[in-house]
Amino acid sequence: MTYKLILNGKTLKGETTTEAVDAATAEKIFKQYANDNGVDGEWTYDDATKTFTVTE
């Protein structure tokens, strides 16, 4: 399945997608991606749209 991440960081904003077997796997990938890019904030997930959002 395709999952989407919306980044609302102070210095980085944008979107990315990943292919993952489930939401938990996608979350791990996205949290590593956000960490690698210096984004740390409040996480939400919308199962209907398979979208994670992180807001600093």
Rank of each mutant, 00 (worst) to 15 (best):
M1I: 12
M1N: 12
M1R: 10
M1Q: 11
T2R: 09
T2D: 06
T2H: 07
T2A: 07
Y3R: 00
Y3K: 00
Y3F: 10
Y3M: 01
Y3A: 01
K4H: 14
K4Q: 07
K4R: 09
K4Y: 07
K4E: 03
L5A: 03
L5W: 02
I6Y: 08
I6D: 03
L7Y: 15
L7Q: 03
N8A: 14
N8P: 02
N8Y: 10
N8E: 08
G9Y: 11
G9K: 04
L12V: 15
L12M: 15
L12H: 14
K13E: 15
G14M: 07
G14N: 09
G14Y: 15
G14L: 14
E15G: 04
E15L: 04
T16S: 10
T17I: 07
T17P: 02
T18Y: 08
T18D: 03
E19D: 11
E19T: 07
E19M: 07
A20P: 02
V21Q: 09
V21T: 14
V21N: 09
V21H: 12
V21S: 12
D22N: 11
D22F: 03
D22T: 06
D22G: 04
A23P: 09
A23N: 07
A24D: 11
A24F: 11
T25D: 07
A26Y: 01
A26Q: 01
E27S: 12
E27Y: 15
E27K: 08
K28D: 11
K28N: 15
I29G: 03
I29Q: 06
I29D: 05
I29Y: 14
F30Q: 00
F30L: 05
K31H: 08
K31E: 04
Y33N: 02
A34E: 01
A34L: 08
N35D: 10
N35I: 12
N35L: 13
N35Q: 09
D36L: 14
D36A: 10
D36G: 06
N37G: 05
N37M: 12
N37D: 03
G38P: 01
G38M: 12
V39Q: 03
V39G: 02
D40A: 15
D40H: 10
D40L: 06
D40P: 04
G41R: 01
G41Q: 02
G41T: 02
G41I: 02
E42Y: 12
E42Q: 09
E42W: 14
E42P: 05
W43H: 01
W43M: 06
T44P: 00
T44W: 08
Y45I: 02
Y45N: 01
Y45E: 01
Y45V: 02
D46S: 06
D46E: 07
A48H: 09
A48T: 10
A48D: 10
T49E: 09
T49Y: 06
T49R: 07
K50S: 08
K50G: 08
T51M: 05
T51L: 05
T51K: 03
T51S: 06
T51V: 15
T51N: 02
F52R: 00
F52W: 10
T53M: 08
T53L: 08
T53N: 05
V54N: 02
V54I: 15
V54P: 01
T55S: 09
T55D: 10
E56W: 15
E56M: 05
E56L: 05
